[in-house]
Write a protein that binds this DNA or RNA. Sequence first.
RNA 1: GGGGGCGUAGCUCAGUUUGGUUAGAGCACUCGACUGUCACUCGAGAGGUCGCGGGUUCGAGCCCCGUCGCUCCCGCCA
Length: 597
Amino acid sequence: MTTPSPATLATSLRTHLAGTLRAEQTGTAVVLGGWVHRSRDLGGQVFLDLRDRGGVVQCSFNPQWTPSEVIAAAAAVGIESVVMIEGTVAPRPAEMRNPEMVTGAIEVRATAIRVVGPAVTPALPVAPIKDGKLPAEELRLRHRILDLRREELQHALVLRHRLMQTTRQYLSAQGYLELETPILTKPTPEGARDFLVPSRMHAGEFYALPQSPQIYKQLFMCAGFDRYFQIARCFRDEDLRADRQLEFTQIDIEASFIGREDIIAMAEGLIQALWAEAGIAVATPFPRMSYADAMERYGCDRPDLRYGLEIEDLTARFAPSESGIIQSALQAGGRVRGIRVPGGAAWSRKQVDELETIAKGAGVGGLIRLKGTGSALEGPLAKFLSPESQAALQLREGELLLAVAAHDRVASPALDRVRQECAARLGLADPTVRRFLWVLDFPMFDQDPETGALAAVHHPFTAPNAEDMQARPDAPASWRALAYDCVLNGTELGGGSIRTSDPAVQARMFALLGIGDTAEQERRFGFLLEGLRAGAPPHGGIAFGFDRIAMLLAGASSLRDVIAFPKTTAARALFEGAPSAVPAADLTELHIRTVDA
RNA sequence: GGGGGCGUAGCUCAGUUUGGUUAGAGCACUCGACUGUCACUCGAGAGGUCGCGGGUUCGAGCCCCGUCGCUCCCGCCA
């Protein structure tokens, strides 16, 4: 993406962008429009820093070139007011140059000023204050216009724009068509809670806002559009987080007559183009790891590969132990797995207890800890381990072994959190390093350990691995899916799958998910099944979380910093004041009556 | 639904531990001075529902109970 030359932003009211003026424009007569960033009134002369989209330039009001009434007007204007300033670009006296401003070699010798948009005293500072902290998030959101004027958010939203255009260019160049799908759509029975929209014309019936355009993009494939993409707004009525908003933007992609490798190659190219737009070179292809491998070695399906601390199976070492805790865990089908932390032996009892609290929070009963002290192991369990077992652990001096004896289902998430906390303490996650990764071969279903009920790990339209299905037709919980996730430094950037294009297979998937009744399938997913029955090409796709990518590339720590008008964690829009009550008559027209909770 | 943190001037904060005169500072704002500043400087001034409600007390910014808002996390997010 290239930005237009400053000249193209000239209008009938202004000639240049303030922040783009340079020494080359010396002698040029300019008319600028912008906001008063700062002002310095020295008595006989006045300096105004004028800010517009392009940046900041100093405007100098001096009796040598400025009429006295203009100087008086400049002295009187309040900061953040919008002014039009006429003047001439001039070099600053050599000793007055400001090397910290890109425009610092020059200034605009002002001859006229007009206050076109006087501002009340701003509720928040816009110009940065040295060592100044940002105002509280609540105030930043309540006075969002002022916050958006800050350089940081200006840059973030400009970057967001450029990433959008890069996406469009990259995909369009490969024959992908940008097609739109409805915002008023049909409620989805699985997944997140829907936002419902009442129908005025049909009493008691509701539209839903899309959680994603998933089914529509598959229908495009059935309709022969072959390659589709959309920068799609999605809505999920779930609790918010720093990296989760009620409405968010996905780069949604689907293609026909493709396999997994086609999607991965296309996606790697897109990632490469987006990171390049942010000035970062990314090498492809990305390494790959199976889901099973990721869970075994890292305890999670989106491992951060910037550091090791890999999980080891220590069952054989601990099996001879007489510890009741370990024996009962093993008898219940569990294993002993753990990580060895270099330098961890120096941690205090309290620090290790904190790790155990984290592990317990993830559902395990406790954390086995053993310190390598050179000659012998230290720790509550050391006495239960035979000298042979202790030696086999090969704990080095200073190492701390943290292990969990439990079923993988609970042990993996616990070890994942302990591993991340240890890495954070040791500063192992280098923020300048980027480790991309494809996680492949996700399981098709997640089985509830109590009820045995199956739920789709990805979504119900994902194709199962055909070999698994044929080899173990009666064990769907063991089937792998043709699904893939793109992971960067422990964060999921996006994911997708090859879809089921055979309506009979799709019906079977619904049945396995507990939607066995044909009429029920037709009622909920008839429009998809009709598409598949009309002749569906093999197809698949992927979706990337656009806001999250923008956040990463902008160096922001919250999605709120790359979304112009975000919601608070309590799901409120403080600036515009949504949601809000509506007149009773509006509800009546929508056939809605509210009840007290 | 649950847990942690925060809430004092327009903004950022101190004051809360140990209740006690009129609640302070920096920036911003108003007025004044100042002809090369760039966080201009200097002088003066104005500015407070200590989030809100209740309680304890002779007395509450400070202690107790409740509540609201923002935030981080767990649950949730196919």
